[in-house]
Structures are given as structure tokens and as C-alpha cells.
Design a protein around this nucleic acid. Structure first.
Lengths: 349, 349
DNA sequence: CCTCGAATGGAGAACGTTCTACACGACTCC
DNA sequence: GGAGTCGTGTAGAACGTTCTCCATTCGAGG
């Protein structure tokens, strides 16, 4: 009955069609597309006209078999962290008027799932990868990076096989501690991601942050009052951490959360316990995402310049993809403290 | 000097390697992979063993030239809308133990950019597409859907070429109006997206919402007191709308915002004008995103079950991709009102 | 004129899959 | 014992590009 049972059978315009229409060879068309050497202006024009007329679009899968696919893959664990959105915007901006398309793999927090996603990207012959704080074993990232140009964002471990973009998280932690101490706080807690040095990453961002926090506390002679609580960087994770810290015996007067999302969870926990912010507790986030500046929240936070990190990552990646650089490099961003209304002088006991 | 100048030259394991290693033909290996008909158990085993031993991973680009790529593309305008994250989670969950990989294209709000991203996905031979409230012209979506199985989320326009998943936005608006009227409100305003019926979509979600709102007001005999204000679904958009509505002459006592993000902007505007919520103004959001339940906010909102929408969309899409269904269908979700602390009896004048 | 080199265009072999068509043997059925 | 059928495996042609050679033309230099 249905003549067109499968929707797939509408034919695509191929390079052969363009070639025939322009009266040239497919090789010539290919050259024009890649603006390779050895094409006369006349041929350029004819071929371009034919492409336009037929609405030709190159078949990316076929390209993938030989050359580039003009696809950049970005791996992130979840889409809810607004910091990643900033990074993503930076990447997109840098690539917006290039031929590259950005595709995102949101792999979840599991290392296996992330590995699977990275492999999926490599198998799809993506030209380059941006991995945002990957949870996969380091060895796996290194072996993938040996094959596909890769930029790792977040992890402080450097390598000669992939490029890196990192934030000076230790400095960031220092800024926060200085600010809080200046306000008069002594009992300061850090809520950071579990941060097992798993998969043989030596310095994931949460470890760098924790180290910086402890050093700064030490610098102020408060090493023995520093506390670190581990929890996932999510709303629920922050909530649980908040409940644990704020209902415990030695209640801190200020908390630094390693991510704004987690800070909001702590905010919620404080409310649950009838504690006001910043009246009873000072709260600081990390990443300075859009939520931090939101009206009812007004969270003091550390700005990591996610947008700029994205720009840098994309630029570095394309250099590698196009073979303009063959040595690994790293870019380090300097964090900045943005003081809002969630921090204040501690209430007297 | 550097012997391995290009990182690309490490050879991949191909189907041919597997075939040779197992002492069979490539065709046989291919059959085993796709568990096609006509393979003896013995062959199965030998081939699988060889694949495992060589750590074979199929080359997706090559697959794309003939059969499936086992890739599902999801288009969304921006990654910051938490509702999309819910949908995405649903899609991922449904596909988590299938062979399909989900790749996301975050295209921004521009129609052109979205079109480009959709085309990029089709060109990469993705097996199926999920488009979340696309801003591209309807005709373009239809022509792409003729070629690649597609599920459109959000737009109420139905079509016999793509499947749809929608929320009964009119019902949702009704729930809100009923709730507010019951509390004693009469002057209720809706803030919804510009909702030009652009690109020939007849019923994008914002239009459905506005229609439902007006009908519900009419049902309560309040048609002449209903007001609709248009603004972008963003924090700033909501802020502007809030200022306009709340500082104007006929101030409404309650506002329904078409998205939680916009509701937060209105929250901010109210604060700027010294109005308290819910003391002076009742405020309702839409989508019931995580921010709505946030401690300092406690926004009454309409839950759209994004997660379930994602599940449904993925399931429908795979049915189509695998050819188990050849007729378009649509799934409609029922919204649910979640009452929190941003709505109350109106203050007496 | 002849030779050489540069500039331009084309032939055709990859690339790694899928899938149609067919070969072959072993059964079953009259 | 011949004809059909079934089950299992393979050969080999696509698929749409890229890219390495090679052929041709044209001009300049001798």
C-alpha cells in the first residue's frame, strides 16, 4: 500500500550530483569544499553555484570515514550545573562562525557511563573533545587523547598528551577564607565533592580546592578549626551536608560550598533548621552561576569565568585539530570573589 | 624527530581484524553484531570471543554510511532551563541500557542557529531526533522529519510525519486560575512568552497556555479582568514584566508566569517595588523546576512531569527508528499544581 | 621549436561498515 | 533418487567522501 513506507528513501544530494550538475569531477568538488590547493577561480564559482542550487550539504558520516567530521564533543556529567552552561556558551561562541558543530554528551556522574560516552564520541570520529572534570580513569582519558585532540577542564593534573584549562581553585579557596576571617569567622567548614583521588587523577578540582582551603586556614592559624565535609555537588547533596554540619555539635559559623548548586542545598537545610542566612550562618558558593545573583538568594560566590574558560578550551582545541600546534599546553584562570548578601559578621554566641 | 607526529595514526581494530582473528568472513561478524538471522551458536561464540579479545568497537561513521549510527540527537535552545534537564534525564533513562547514545545540541534561541543544528544532526546520520520546543520554521521540521524519525516536544501542532509529546498547558493554566480564584483573587495576570505564531507553528506552548488562561478566566466570569503580558522566559524578561505590571495603574493581585525563571524575575521586581510575596502579590510559576522549591523562594508552580515526557519521547522515537510503528502519535501529559508559599489570600484594599 | 615547470583538473583507490544475493550441504518428502 | 527446503556461511557491491597520484595544458626560457 504505502508507497513510501520507509521515510529514509528520499535521496540525498551527494557530491556526485553536484559534480555532474557543474560538469566537473567529484574530486574537483571536494577540493572546492575544503578549499584545497589547485582550483581556478572559475571552477570555484561554478562549483559553488551548483552546490547552492542543489542545496548540497556534505554527508558527515562519509566525511568521517576519511577526513574530518567537523564535530567537537563536549563531555559533562550533568546539565544542571549552571557553571557548565557558562563554559558551554564560551565554547559555542568561539566556534560559532567556524564550520564545527558542538555536540554535548551528558553522561551522568558514573565513571562507567562517562567512559562509554567518551568512547561513543571517539567512535563517531569527532575531531576533538572537551572533557569537563571527567570522572573516568585518567589512563583512559590519556589513551583517548592519544588518538583524538582533547582538552581537559578542571583537573589540575597535567599531561603532555592533552591540553588543560583550569582554575586556580586553591587561590579561590584562599579568597573566601580571607573574606570570612576578615568578617570575624573562625569556625569555617568546606563542603566539597567526595574527591577520591580515584582513577589516578591526582588533582581533581575538589582536591585543589580542599588543599587551598586548608592552607588558607593554616595561614590564619585556624588549621584545627577547619572542617571538610564531603558530598555530591547537587542540590540534594548540599542539603544533606547542610543538615549534617548545622545540626551537629560544633556548628560552624560559615560554610564554603564547592559549587553554587550545593550552596543552595545548604541554604535549604538552614531554612529547615530555622537558621537564617547570613544572620546565623554565612554561606559562600563557588562558580558564581546565574542562580547566585538571583533576587532571593544573593549568594556570595567565587567567579571562575566559565565563559572565558570555554573560549580558551575551544581555541586550544581547534589549534590542535587543525595541526597548528603539536605540544600540550595549559591555561590557568584566576578566580575572583563576588561578595553578595549571604556573608556577614558572625552573630555573637 | 617525533616519530608519531600525528596522533591519528594509531590503527583502529576493524571488523576485518575481528573476522581474521575468528577465522570467518566480515559478513559473519557483521551479522553477529546486529544479531541478524542465520548465525549458529558456535559462530556467535567465536566471533564474540574475538571481539572481546581485540577490544573491538564498531566505527560509527562507517556504520552511518550504510545502516544505523545508533545515535539520538536532542535539540534544545539552552541548557539553563531546568525543565529541559528533567526531560533529558527521562530520555537518558529510557535509553540507558540500549545501544543508543544521546547527543545534545544546545543551539541557542536563534531560529537560524537551531536550523543549523538540526541539519547538522541529520547530516551526521543520527537515527532519530527529539526537538524540544524548536524555534525553527515548522516547514523545516516537517521536511527533516520526513527523512529522520522525529519527536517534537512542546508544540501542540500535530502532524502525521512526526510524533509529539505535549503537556496539556491549557489544563495547567486552568488549575492555576482555579486555585487563585478560590483564594479570592480576581485580577490575575499572565506573563507568557511573546508567542508569535511564527514559523507557522499554530500552537506553541505559550499560546496554548494563554488560551487556557483566558478560557479559565472566562469560566469564572472574569474574562474582562484577565490580562496578558508578553516577555521572554528569562530572569530579565520576568523582571521587566513584573515592573510593568506592578507599577501600572490596575495592579493585579496575582501573577502566573509561564516559566519558573520568569517568575523569579517577577519576584525580584516585586522586591524592588517594596511589595511582598505572597503578602501583596501572589505569584505562580510553571515547570516546577528545582528553583521553585528552593528555600527562600517556595514558589507555587505547575509540574509538567518533564522526566516522564522524556521517557515517553524516547520510547516513541525508538519505536519509529526500529520500524515497529509507522503512524504518527502524540502523548499528552497532565499537569499538576504544586502549592507552596508564594500564593495566599489577597490583601484587602 | 623543444623542454621544463607550474597550474589545473580528473581517475580511482581507499575508508569500515551493511546487506543482497548466492553457494553449499543436510534434510525431508514424495 | 530427484526436487524442494532449510540453515549456515561468504563474496562483493554499495555508501559518500578524501586524497594521492597522474594527465593535460599553457607559458616561459633556451
Amino acid at each position: 500500500m504505502a508507497a513510501d513506507s520507509s521515510p529514509r528513501d528520499t535521496k540525498r544530494v551527494t557530491i556526485t550530483d553536484v559534480a555532474r550538475h557543474a560538469g566537473v569531477s567529484t574530486a574537483a568538488v571536494s577540493k572546492v569544499m575544503r578549499n584545497a590547493y589547485g582550483v581556478s577561480p572559475g571552477m570555484q564559482e561554478r562549483v559553488r553555484a551548483a552546490m547552492a542550487e542543489l542545496e548540497y550539504r556534505p554527508h558527515a558520516a562519509a566525511r568521517g570515514m576519511r577526513g574530518r567530521t567537523y564535530t567537537i564533543g563536549v563531555l559533562l556529567d550533568n546539565v544542571r550545573n549552571a557553571f557548565f552552561a557558562d563554559v558551554l556558551d564560551g565554547i559555542r561562541e568561539e566556534l560559532s562562525d567556524s564550520e564545527y558543530t558542538v555536540l554535548i554528551g551528558a553522561a551522568g556522574f558514573g565513571a562507567d557511563e562517562q567512559s562509554r560516552t567518551i568512547r561513543a564520541m571517539v567512535d563517531r570520529q569527532m575531531d576533538g573533545l572537551v572533557l569537563i572534570a571527567p570522572g573516568t580513569p585518567r589512563s583512559e582519558v590519556l589513551s583517548m587523547a592519544a588518538t583524538t585532540p582533547t582538552v581537559v577542564i578542571g583537573h589540575h593534573d597535567s599531561s603532555d598528551v592533552h591540553d588543560s584549562v583550569i582554575d586556580a581553585d586553591d587561590v579561590g579557596a584562599g579568597l573566601v577564607v580571607d573574606h570570612l576571617v576578615e568578617l570575624g569567622h573562625r569556625d569555617i567548614a568546606l563542603v566539597s565533592a567526595p574527591g577520591s583521588r580515584s582513577g589516578r587523577w591526582q588533582r581533581p578540582p575538589e582536591i585543589a580546592l580542599a588543599d587551598g582551603f586548608l592552607q588558607a586556614m593554616d595561614r590564619h592559624g585556624l588549621a584545627d578549626r577547619a572542617r571538610v565535609h564531603h558530598s555530591a555537588y547537587s542540590d540534594d547533596g548540599g542539603h544533606a551536608a547542610g543538615l549534617a554540619l548545622l545540626s551537629g555539635a560544633q556548628r560552624p559559623t560559615a560554610i564554603l560550598a564547592g559549587a553554587d548548586v550545593a550552596a543552595l542545598g545548604i541554604y535549604r537545610a538552614a531554612a529547615d533548621l530555622g537558621l537564617s542566612i547570613p544572620g546565623d550562618i554565612s554561606l559562600v558558593g563557588y562558580n558564581n552561576t546565574a542562580i547566585a545573583s538571583l533576587a532571593p538568594v544573593q549568594l556570595t560566590s567565587v567567579d571562575q569565568a566559565g565563559h572565558t574558560m570555554g573560549l580558551a578550551a575551544a581555541r586550544m582545541l581547534i589549534e590542535r585539530v587543525e595541526g597548528r600546534r603539536d605540544r600540550a599546553m595549559r591555561t590557568t584562570m584566576t578566580p575572583r570573589l563576588v561578595v553578595r548578601r549571604s556573608t556577614a559578621t558572625p552573630s555573637l554566641p
